[in-house]
Design a binder for these strands. Structure first.
Lengths: 238, 238
DNA sequence: CGTGTCAGCTTTGTATGCAAGATGGAAATA
DNA sequence: TATTTCCATCTTGCATACAAAGCTGACACG
């Protein structure tokens, strides 16, 4: 009669708070996630932290360097392209397979676009990064397939990390326009067109990245030697 | 100079051998995966087993019933539909985003279809189940996006579990024909058509399932009360 | 001044121990 | 006989202990 499939609440909170930290652009790529550090922070033993880390690792959000530590991933240029490519595949298929836009979805998206406009007016760049990514998750939520939502959420987390690494200049209004085009097409039931706009939008965002820029001057050497990331002392703020 | 990103080999083997057991239809849905059981089987401590289980859980392949045990998932009818829906989205988008079929891919697919024909001739149903699922992973591999490959592999594992639960009669030749149509379209560079055929094929397979059939008569009640699965004593054969 | 070595500290990897919860069956009761 | 209670047993949840390996910095040496 109660909740089925009870999972221990803290376990999820550890995972979720790190993911949400990334989704809200508070945790930077390369951030070190020390086990005992997090253990004291969440007031649990290292065991639980490790479990959360392993889950996050299979989701592609953190990496472990054996005997050295856990780090938030710093996607390489190649990985960044793969992430965008995967998103193109999924979002295109998602929109093409939609048949109609329910009223709740319409409201959700138009509210979201209003938020984007507001953040642009206020010039809140961090908030914009979050909103720009969230738009795509919203669409998946409207489509209603939870599996796709989860996949896209993890890809979005990685996208944000990529933006933090490679986004030199932030074309917020261009992105916003892209979202508006997608929404407009959805609104009139042209999901085929919306899908095309989505691919086009993702291409624009991807070409807006400076994939030759490296996180730090030594990064090229570092990654080619598969050494650990740079931000050694960066702690999870809070 | 050697391998970067070294992960402890056994860890992966535990996970991989369970997944491959499912992909080859040797492990049935609902199979109990006892921690100490697996620990002695793989000759490691429970800790490692638990880690592997948690990874598999985030991949949607096993579930834990608190204090009762780990079980290979038994997808409900609703979950089955979500899996097929997600696959339609991904495979459609995948084919639509392909631009050409490399020679290696062409050979891989035609070899695969030959294998399918052979298995059909021999009437090897288990092998057919595996091959039918594998075809779709092959396509993702040819497209070359590892993220999509991984996602699709996990969805395929679930698909096989679904087939084992709900597939009353097995229309192998129908599936094979579907694959041939997709391949033929790809061969002439008509990826748009291939994408349509893929969706159509997945629809056929899905409607071929008897989603009203329950694994066991009490399953509906059992799952609605979120009780543990049925095959209590089923051990992982070795 | 630069380089190599080593000790001590820190961090992860793995096993083990113990507690809490769930199950199944025996025993007691009506 | 049918039903309920309770205990022995099993399984997971979580924490802790210890081992292995990496890092840092001091010190010695060229």
């Amino acid at each position: 009669m109660q909740d089925g499939n009870t999972q221990q609440p803290t376990q999820i909170n550890i995972e979720a708070s790190i993911v949400s930290g990334i989704l809200s652009a508070r945790i930077r790529p390369g951030t070190r996630l020390g086990e005992s550090q997090l253990a004291t922070l969440f007031d649990v033993s290292r065991t639980r932290i490790r479990e959360a880390m392993m889950r996050l690792e299979t989701r592609g959000i953190v990496t472990v360097f054996p005997r050295r530590g856990w780090y938030v991933v710093e996607p390489s240029a190649e990985e960044a392209m793969k992430v965008y490519s995967a998103r193109r595949v999924i979002e295109f298929g998602l929109l093409r397979n939609m048949s109609h836009l329910p009223d709740a979805g319409l409201k959700m998206l138009s509210d979201h676009l209003a938020e984007e406009r507001q953040a642009m007016a206020e010039g809140d760049r961090q908030r914009l990064t979050v909103l720009m990514a969230d738009f795509h998750i919203r669409i998946a939520e409207i489509a209603g397939n939870e599996i796709i939502v989860e996949t896209l959420r993890d890809l979005t987390a990685r996208t944000i990390l990529i933006s933090m690494l490679y986004q030199s200049d932030f074309h917020a209004s261009q992105s916003h326009d892209g979202h508006c085009r997608i929404f407009a097409a959805m609104q009139v039931g042209d999901f085929s067109g919306a899908a095309e706009y989505a691919v086009q939008h993702l291409n624009e965002v991807e070409t807006g990245l400076d994939l030759t820029r490296r996180p730090d001057p030594l990064a090229a050497l570092r990654t080619s030697l598969s050494l650990p990331p740079s931000n050694w002392k960066t702690k999870k703020e809070q």
